[in-house]
Structure formats: structure tokens, C-alpha cells
């Protein structure tokens, strides 16, 4: 058991503090590097569309789910002005903007150049094959929270 005496006793608190400051930090250097690197994902002029639904997390696995249904991952992002719905299969990413309007979506991927794809007048877009890794999508002045595919 880890003693919780430090919560009450000054002597115990000073003792734990001393141990903490004399114990080498076990954090791998790569963990700090990765944390420093994500600063480049900062966007200044765009409103964040939060991830409000991710089927891989929010729907519990069900016995009897058909394989093709299980393979389709759906994600929803919401900002105050725009909802972005994504369906991702092994072959393609399909997107729907609600309401339609923006004519293009920019795909940012960790470690590679951003690229832009057209959005049709109904607000749908398609990327095949789907991008992989850490991704954000920007359309007009809205950027999605980063997600992994």
C-alpha cells in the first residue's frame, strides 16, 4: 500500500516531496518530443468542431453485428455553424457537411503535406483510399478535433 499520510502530516508530505525530487523522471524522451510536436496542430483562425460521436468508442461491440457494419466507422464533429459526419470503411472515407456550402475540405495529416478535395453542392465528399494516421479536416473557418484513422 502507498501511504496517504502526506495528505495530513507535514513531515510525511516533506518526505514524499524529497523522494519525488530525488527520483529520476521515468518519462521517455520520445513522449516529450511528441507533446512538443503537436503544437504545430494549433489553428488560430478556425473554430473547433468537437468530436461528439465515434462509433468505435461510443457503441459497444454487439454480438451478431454483421461484419460490413462493424467495419464501417462513423464519426461526427460539431461546431456552432457546421456539422461534419464521416463514414470510414477500408476503401473510402465519405463525408457530409451539414448544412452544405463549403466547396472544399483540406486534409491535414501528421508528417505529410496538406491537400484539398472538392465538396459537391449537396455537401458530400469522398476520399479513397481513406487517409491514415492523425488527421484534421478544415472546411471554411471550421477545423475538426484531431482524430486517428
Amino acid at each position: 500500500m502507498i501511504s496517504n499520510d502526506w495528505q495530513e502530516s507535514d513531515e510525511a508530505l516533506l518526505q514524499v516531496l524529497t523522494q519525488a525530487l530525488h527520483t529520476p523522471d521515468p518519462t521517455p524522451a520520445s513522449v516529450r518530443e511528441a507533446a512538443r510536436a503537436v503544437y504545430t496542430w494549433r489553428t488560430i483562425d478556425a473554430e473547433l468542431a468537437e468530436l461528439v460521436h465515434d462509433s468505435r468508442v461510443d457503441e459497444l461491440a454487439m454480438a451478431g453485428l454483421r461484419a460490413e457494419e462493424a467495419d464501417l466507422r462513423t464519426l461526427s464533429f460539431e461546431s456552432s455553424t457546421l456539422t461534419i459526419e464521416l463514414g470510414v470503411s477500408t476503401t473510402a472515407l465519405l463525408g457530409q457537411l451539414v448544412p452544405p456550402g463549403p466547396t472544399e475540405v483540406t486534409v491535414h495529416r501528421e508528417g505529410s503535406a496538406a491537400y484539398t478535395i472538392p465538396v459537391d453542392p449537396d455537401g458530400t465528399f469522398r476520399i479513397a483510399p481513406p487517409p491514415t494516421g492523425l488527421i484534421t479536416l478544415t472546411c471554411a473557418d471550421v477545423v475538426t478535433a484531431a482524430f486517428r484513422l
Binding site: 513522449v31 503544437y39 496542430w41
Partner: peptide
Amino acid sequence: SQTVWLRLVE
């Protein structure tokens, strides 16, 4: 960890 730092950037 990296995801947590992304959430902080956002």
C-alpha cells in the same frame, strides 16, 4: 499522452 496534448492545443 500525445492525444491529451492535442486536446490541450485545441
